[in-house]
Design a protein around this nucleic acid. Structure first.
Lengths: 202, 202
DNA sequence: GTCTATAACGGGATAGAC
DNA sequence: GTCTATCCCGTTATAGAC
């Protein structure tokens, strides 16, 4: 069944694809081994449990994405604009979705019942959100601290929805809108969110 | 076990609560009957299958919400402002979450793998989105048709995220932000999204 | 490291008495 | 309409040969 090369990687790749398409509860280990062309027991050998497999699948992608977010924010200098901050936050995630074989995995992570709150939120999202919140607060000194958090929360919502249902806009719009042009997509989101952040009242 | 009153309603109420908390795949029929204090077989008697139960749970809430959305849009007259349109779209859903015992059920619906695409999207969301898209296009004549759809898509993302993870902002902000004041919440979202919609470039 | 076989369990659904 | 008891299936996980 197995050609001998990279069983562990193949399990991760298939898991990523299927979890993205069907959700974590919606994919059995048998679905994964069938897609990957490996044996059922090999998952237990390499990852012990399904839960640990899920964590490994997520960590493999989210860590480089967050690293790139911090790098882009640093690269924008000590006084980044709202647009630069938002792009640093959004671009790495949107690009990943387009290039890796993950389907809407990241969106799935953001919208999964227990997983998100208990394991992802504290480890990956809370420190990230705090860093970007601070940058946005500095770039928007007239905005109340409370309102900065709210607007970041709204922006995260836009991102999650795009990661999860990016393709659906082609159906909503009867083909008028396309997600092919990633640069244009990111520009659109940044423009929309930046205008929201700059809105006057508190 | 059962006191004789309203078994069907109690099943719907418990299902709504638990599905909201744990997702559709994460809740078994046994979980529901335990919470509702009814017999396992009564679910099959009243709803035949789990899938039909899920549909019934959703329909019970989404239909009045959409009805109210259309009514609020009508009530705003023939030339509603962007803010009026957005409020008509957002308020009924946000209010429902706060008043019904459903937890984040509607958010769950919006982010569930198959359910959304195959059953909810065509029946409930597509006609609604088309009606509000047309209203927004009329209120924003300088915006390209394509951009209107994109920005509505972003707004739906904000709403879904709020419906699903509304409470998390209190943790992100260490208690600074609160979702208690629903009117203020709706105003915040409307203001943010309206500014995004009014952003100049196409 | 990889496989077969199977254990142990929980799931949805149903039969049939009351 | 409501209950008990049960069927049958798919699930995760593991034991043990190779």
């Amino acid at each position: 069944m197995n050609d001998g090369g990279g069983t562990k990687i193949r399990i991760l790749d298939s898991s990523e694809k299927l979890f993205g398409l069907k959700g974590f509860d919606g994919v059995s280990l048998r679905d994964i081994t069938a897609d990957a062309g490996v044996n059922l027991a090999s998952i237990n050998y390499h990852f012990q449990t399904k839960e640990a497999l899920i964590d490994a699948v997520i960590a493999r992608r989210i860590e480089p994405v967050n690293k790139r977010r911090y790098e882009m924010l640093e690269a924008a200098g000590p006084e980044p604009t709202v647009e630069q901050i938002l792009e640093a936050f959004l671009l790495p995630a949107i690009e990943l979705k387009a290039t890796a074989p993950l389907g809407p995995l990241m969106g799935r992570v953001m919208t999964n019942p227990d997983l998100f709150v208990d394991r992802i939120f504290n480890v990956y999202l809370a420190p990230l959100a705090e860093r970007f919140r601070a940058a946005l607060a500095k770039a928007l000194p007239h905005l109340s601290p409370e309102e900065v958090v709210w607007r970041l929360h709204f922006t995260i919502g836009i991102m999650s929805h795009q990661l999860l249902w990016g393709g659906i806009i082609e159906r909503i719009s009867n083909g008028l809108c396309s997600t092919k042009d990633r640069e244009a997509l990111i520009r659109r989101i940044v423009r929309f969110a930046a205008a929201g952040f700059r809105s006057n009242e508190n």
